[in-house]
């Protein structure tokens, strides 16, 4: 087990299995088809992301450097949370980007009954260490344990 310290963007505690991308996560490209056409697993639809394409995102600990792409990204994330089709948590190696921050904040302020902890600044070592399927526990104060 290894522990990493990040910064809390939106709080919460959760344990989930990791899905990992070392490339930028394109929120619109990843979620659009799954949300629109009722994919229960919310499989990643971003053809350009060979690490995630086709993998389920719902309920997973999504480990990523940052999000990229369309400025619908934040509202897509907000919709995913409102529809309860969101990842269990989002764990950023880098400081968070403006679109992901918007999605996290919109969900936190405007969606009742959904908690999706978002932690950033976990560092490159976190993304080098974590692999698909590892168990991740997010604790208070931005502590992330990887098993």
């Amino acid at each position: 087990m290894k522990q990493f310290q990040g910064r809390v963007i939106t709080p919460g505690e959760v344990t989930a299995q990791a899905v990992v991308t070392t490339e930028g996560f394109n929120t619109l490209a990843s979620f659009q088809m799954a949300l629109q056409f009722g994919d229960k697993d919310v499989k990643c639809g971003d053809q350009s992301n060979r690490q995630l394409y086709g993998k389920p995102l719902i309920g997973k600990a999504l480990c990523l450097p940052q999000t990229i792409g369309s400025t619908t990204g934040g509202l897509v994330l907000y919709c995913a949370c409102a529809m309860k089709k969101n990842p269990a948590c989002m764990l950023f190696a880098n400081p968070i980007d403006s679109l992901a921050a918007a999605g996290a904040v919109l969900a936190d302020v405007w969606v009742d009954g959904v908690t999706m902890p978002v932690i950033d600044s976990l560092g490159d070592e976190f993304l080098n260490y974590v692999k698909d399927g590892m168990t991740i526990t997010v604790k208070d104060g931005g502590v992330v344990e990887v098993d």
Partner: peptide
């Protein structure tokens, strides 16, 4: 301008 998300705009 920052890269604002929809709704934040």
């Amino acid at each position: 301008c920052n890269r604002n998300s929809g709704i934040i705009d």
